[in-house]
């Protein structure tokens, strides 16, 4: 059995963004349910936040191959 520690490292690195995405999207859904008329704005802002959080996981994904 051979492999590389990078894969385990990538797995660990997804934890942070995973928690972050969960919190972020849960809050977005919550606020959309409270104020459906603001749903469009909340969705846009949520996607921007998701993009920022997701960048961390993507960096890990690339570095897992690159290093």
């Amino acid at each position: 059995m051979e492999g590389t520690l990078n894969v385990i490292g990538y797995g660990l690195a997804t934890l942070g963004p995973g928690i972050g995405l969960g919190l972020l999207i849960a809050k977005a859904i919550e606020s959309m349910a409270r104020q459906p008329e603001a749903a469009g704005m909340v969705r846009t802002t949520m996607f921007i936040g998701v993009a920022v959080v997701e960048a961390l996981a993507l960096l890990a994904f690339v570095l897992a191959f690159a290093l």
Binding site: A51, E54, A55, L58, L59, V62
Partner: peptide, 16 residues
Amino acid sequence: LRPFTLAVRLFANMVA
């Protein structure tokens, strides 16, 4: 970081 993450997000999603 802005252009880098733009590029890497698309690239990594497509590779995966």
